[in-house]
C-alpha cells in the first residue's frame, strides 16, 4: 500500500521517548525514496499518455488523470513524512549539544546518518560562535547552583589540571572538593561524577 513505509518512519518518531534517539532507519528510508521515484515514473508516464492521446487536459477527467493525481499526492505525502522524520530527529540531535556536550559518545554516533553527524557539528559550531561572541560560557551551570563547592569522584584518569590558582592531580577514583563551575565541564564529559554520601 502506498505511503505505508513512510508512515512507519513517522510512527517511529512518535513512539520513541522524548529526547531519545533510535538508530537511523536507513532501510525504510531508502525504500521510501525508491517508492517516490516509482510514483514519479508512473506520474510521468500517465501524463505522457494523456498528451499523446491529444486529450483536452483542462476538461478530461479520465482514469489516467486521477491516477496521476494519486501518484502525485502519494509522493508529496512521502516527502512530508521523510521531512518530518529528519526534522524531528534533528531536533533531538541538537538537544544533545546541551545535554551531552560537543563530542557525542560512540553509541550515539552509530545511530546517526552521515548528514546528521554533519548537522550536529555545524549546529555545535553555531552555538560555539554565539558563546565566543557573547564571551560567556552557556554550557556550564545547567542546574541552579546550591553550593559553590561540590564533592566529586573522578571516573577516568584526567591527570594534572590547573584550577584557579592551584593545580590538582585528578586520578581515577580519587575524591575532590572542587568549585562547581570547575567540576561541571568534567562531569558533562563523563570524566567525573558528583559524589553524594
Amino acid at each position: 500500500m502506498y505511503g505505508r513505509r513512510a508512515s512507519q518512519l513517522v510512527r517511529e518518531i512518535d513512539s520513541s521517548e522524548a529526547g531519545q534517539l533510535a538508530p537511523f532507519n536507513s532501510d525504510i528510508f531508502d525504500q521510501v525514496i525508491r517508492e517516490c521515484n516509482e510514483h514519479n515514473a508512473q506520474f510521468q508516464s500517465l501524463i505522457r499518455k494523456m498528451v499523446e492521446q491529444n486529450l483536452d487536459i483542462e476538461t478530461t477527467r479520465n482514469e489516467d488523470h486521477y491516477g496521476a493525481a494519486i501518484h502525485h499526492l502519494s509522493l508529496l505525502r512521502n516527502k512530508r513524512c521523510l521531512m518530518a522524520y529528519m526534522y524531528n530527529r534533528a531536533e533531538v540531535i541538537q538537544s544533545f549539544r546541551w545535554k551531552i556536550g560537543p563530542v557525542l559518545p560512540h553509541d550515539i554516533q552509530e545511530k546517526l546518518h552521515f548528514s546528521e553527524k554533519e548537522y550536529f557539528k555545524n549546529h555545535s559550531a553555531a552555538i560555539k560562535s554565539y558563546i565566543s561572541e557573547m564571551d560567556i560560557d552557556l554550557t556550564v551551570d545547567m542546574v541552579p547552583p546550591k553550593d559553590p563547592y561540590i564533592q566529586v569522584r573522578v571516573l577516568e584518569d584526567i591527570g594534572e589540571v590547573s584550577l584557579g590558582d592551584h593545580s590538582v592531580s585528578l586520578t581515577k577514583n580519587s575524591l575532590h572538593f572542587l568549585r562547581r563551575t570547575d567540576a561541571e565541564q568534567f562531569i558533562s564529559q563523563g570524566l567525573m561524577e558528583e559524589f553524594l554520601e
Binding site: I33, L75, Y119, H123
Partner: peptide, 23 residues
Amino acid sequence: KFAKSCGEIMEKHLKQSVLSKLP
C-alpha cells in the same frame, strides 16, 4: 546571527538528506 546560521544548517541538512534524493 545564530538564528540565521541555524536556518542555513537545517536547510542544508534537509536538502542533503531528503530533498536531493527526491525526483
